[in-house]
Write a protein that binds this DNA or RNA. Structure first.
Lengths: 114, 114
DNA sequence: TGGCTATTTGGCTATATTACCAAATATTCA
DNA sequence: TGAATATTTGGTAATATAGCCAAATAGCCA
């Protein structure tokens, strides 16, 4: 790979990678609605607190969320809400994929019950 | 995690995960410019052909690219160019991160040479 | 057919990621 | 200070990913 461009792709990839996990996507969407502390997110997600904490630190390292300590809790919030715009495009990709599958099924004479 | 929502987050995450690799991001940008065969991409990237082929299959499985065989080559093209829109937002995140780091440096009295 | 080129697949190793538990840290409040 | 709560960190095991090489597959052309 062209040596000059590589670090840029690396940096961008890190951000996408940070978003590329179901739990972290869930967190991003929740934080888009309102800020939340680790405890609240943990209850919603239903995993171990330490797991959620680590997911949050991945998002924080990627620069996608900010944290603020208030009292005994730490509140996280989304810092670049534009990442939510991705979802629309991703849904398009998913929809297209489903349609592709349905076409294949139809060509094979598979009867798709509605 | 709410069981109902989980598969949706899973599906979305898969697409972001597919994009979350420097080489694959490079491929996506190249294919945005014009379609390319495996061979051409391999030369640009400078890795083993088999490695590039596998990256392409990740992108294909995610539904991000399409392939078409012509003669002895297989040409790939981007199917949802909207994924390129992500880049703008990602660059914003990156820029914000750099600014954050610079502020920290400044607060610590670190002299940043221009 | 046989050789050539393009691509994919299988096998392997090294590394990264995820999840849990347990322990450490920090803050509040009695 | 000491108990209670919130969060992070370290350790560890299971799984996933990435890269290379070698081998298999497919199409073209002499």
């Amino acid at each position: 790979m062209e040596q000059k461009l590589h670090p840029q792709f690396e940096a961008r990839a890190n951000i996408l990678k940070a978003m590329g996990h179901p739990t972290r996507l869930f967190i991003i969407e929740e934080l888009h609605k309102k800020e939340r502390c680790v405890n609240e997110l943990t209850e919603m997600i239903g995993a171990d607190v330490s797991t959620v904490s680590k997911h949050l630190s991945v998002l924080k390292n990627a620069g996608l969320v900010l944290d603020e300590k208030r009292g005994t809790s730490i509140y996280y919030r989304l810092c670049c809400p534009c990442v939510l715009d991705f979802i629309g495009c991703i849904e398009t990709v998913l929809k297209t994929n489903v349609e592709k599958q349905m076409n294949i099924a139809q060509c094979c004479g598979i009867n798709l019950k509605k």
